[in-house]
Design a protein around this nucleic acid. Structure first.
Lengths: 331, 331
DNA sequence: AGCGTTGTCGTCAGCGATGACGTTATCGTT
DNA sequence: AACGATAACGTCATCGCTGACGACAACGCT
């Protein structure tokens, strides 16, 4: 049903190949012929099929972006960085949301790749090198964010100083006199969670506080998880006077829970978040948190991917983005 | 470089067509042959090329979702509804972000369609029937959200009672005694803005208040726009005692601005938002707003698109989603 | 024995485009 | 006048896969 090159060629009275040349601006074409073809294209409303083209060129000028939760403002901001940069470089971006399901993370990459996208940026929850290599061809570069996989050709890395950030936060709480510091830690498996827990331990150790496993609770990563997690943790360990949260959403949930429990924040329970999403300065109390330059992470990831696309085979060192503690009202 | 059917066929000692039959589970195949093919597929790590398949079948089991701002929680929640429902129906979803650029809205749909996606859901800012028909073939169904285009085969509609919502909000403010009610109204052109302005006028009229054009300010749709818009509007019209905002993000900006200007909310300036995003109950003061069931909108849109896909040529009536005023602290 | 049926495959063309290479006319050069 | 270079096209095979159709053996039935 769609208009094909054949029809354009017919109407313009030239060969299909000539139409292709005009469309792709390649080879030598006389002005007259070009004009005729252009008119035919316009008349018929012809649009080249990217699918057919992709079949032979193996390029689509489209990249994929895969992450776990579109409703997470942290990821939105990262995405903004990716999108702006990609648009500048004339790449289309297709976004896939995995909903945090490991299975789905794999499916998303597969699907994108099977659609012949040129490369992908993944904010992995469960991705590991093994299955990425299984799915992606060496000439399909992948950039991983917040992940400690060793770089190799076709694999790019953008990491955040998450461990340091967690240490800064916990150290701050400890210096304020808190000795019983709980942590609401997101899921169990993902590397970014593990790193933040590591930083939490670093912070405790730095202040001579013994790490207690039972003060770390793995909940989800959304507001509700923070709410439920806080209720649970404070019920089991009322001695907790401060909470370090995996992210600001959890911190918001924690604040809600404290309000409900009659615990004043920060006096009865100090709360520190992570990411510094836009909303964390607006809630009450404003959240003390670890700032991450999310847009920059996206920008770097996108740039790196484009570099890899233009420069196949090259191997790039990881990019590491720094963090900073922002003190507000909640701790 | 990727493994093709040919290689699988070679290794299994059968024809390409037979491999195709196994992969697609069609036709009669003996168990023995199927087994051999399956083993070859597994050995070689073969994955069918969706591109090649799409070229001939014109189906990819993938739909597109197009909207303006991935960082807008309203859209995230709608997306969640779309994604869950589509996943249930075994459709992959590719999301495109237009950044609110009219040009880009067109490009996104074109790109998706040229990749042979089966259909698309658009949260249009500038889309109109003309160019949608120009771009989409009749057999590529499109569902439009919050848009007043007349339904026709291939075009589905999900609308929200936006005008009513705005009326409810403004009526509430007027009944509280406010006579100088300003509006921060997002962009100029989009239909959803126009409808909310209409509702704003309805609300005024209902209470015998004259509409004044200069009290309506077109700003952007993000927090910063609300901040700037409020400063500007209150500077020019200090008599304003209440602000109706196009969405909750703007309302948040308005609250920030009021704090900065030393205006107490709601005493010195009442503020009502729209959408009831999750964060609006968390900020301080909690935002009085018009509740919209965002997830449901996404769910309905996705369902409708799937229906249209399975039922080509049918014509569906628009779905209209109701709204509700939620009273909190800001007004 | 002859014939239709059914189960299992294979052949061939074509989806819409592009890359590699071939062809033709024209022109300048020695 | 003969020849190579160049501009401006055209031909053909191919990308990986599927639909339409055909082939052939085994089987049952009259």
């Amino acid at each position: 049903m769609p208009v094909t090159m054949r029809e354009v060629a017919l109407q313009a009275g030239v060969s299909i190949k000539t139409v292709s040349r005009v469309v792709n601006d390649q080879g030598e074409i006389s002005d007259l012929t070009r004009e005729r073809v252009l008119i035919a294209i316009d008349n018929l409303g012809y649009r080249p099929s990217k699918v057919a083209r992709a079949l032979v060129t193996r390029r689509t000028d489209t990249i994929g972006l895969i992450f776990g939760d579109i409703a997470n403002p942290y990821l939105s901001e990262v995405s903004l960085g990716v999108l702006d940069t990609a648009a500048n470089e004339k790449f289309e971006v297709f976004i896939c949301n995995t909903g945090g399901i490991p299975e789905s993370e794999k499916r998303a990459l597969t699907s994108l790749l099977d659609h012949n996208i040129d490369g992908a940026i993944i904010f992995p929850l469960y991705a590991n090198r093994i299955w990425i290599q299984e799915i992606a061809q060496p000439d399909q570069p992948i950039v991983l964010m917040n992940c400690d996989i060793v770089p190799r050709p076709g694999l790019g890395l953008i990491a955040t100083e998450m461990r340091k950030g967690a240490r800064l936060a916990v150290d701050y709480l400890a210096k304020k006199g808190h000795r019983n510091i709980g942590m609401l830690a997101g899921e169990v498996a993902p590397k970014n969670v593990i790193q933040r827990v590591q930083g939490y331990r670093d912070g405790l150790e730095l202040n001579g506080i013994k790490y207690r496993d039972e003060l770390v609770l793995n909940v989800g990563t959304v507001i509700e998880s923070g709410k439920i997690g806080t209720q649970q943790l404070l019920a089991q360990h009322p001695e907790i006077s401060a909470l370090f949260c995996y992210n600001d959403l959890i911190a918001m949930g924690a604040i809600e829970a404290c309000k409900k429990l009659g615990r004043r924040v920060p006096d009865d329970c100090a709360i520190v978040g992570f990411d510094n999403i836009r909303f964390s300065s607006l809630v009450s109390p404003a959240i003390t948190t670890v700032h991450v330059d999310k847009y920059e992470i996206g920008r770097q990831a996108s740039n790196r991917l484009v570099d890899m696309l233009r420069n196949p085979g090259a191997i790039y060192p990881p990019i590491i983005v720094d963090v900073e503690l922002i003190i507000r009202e909640s701790a």
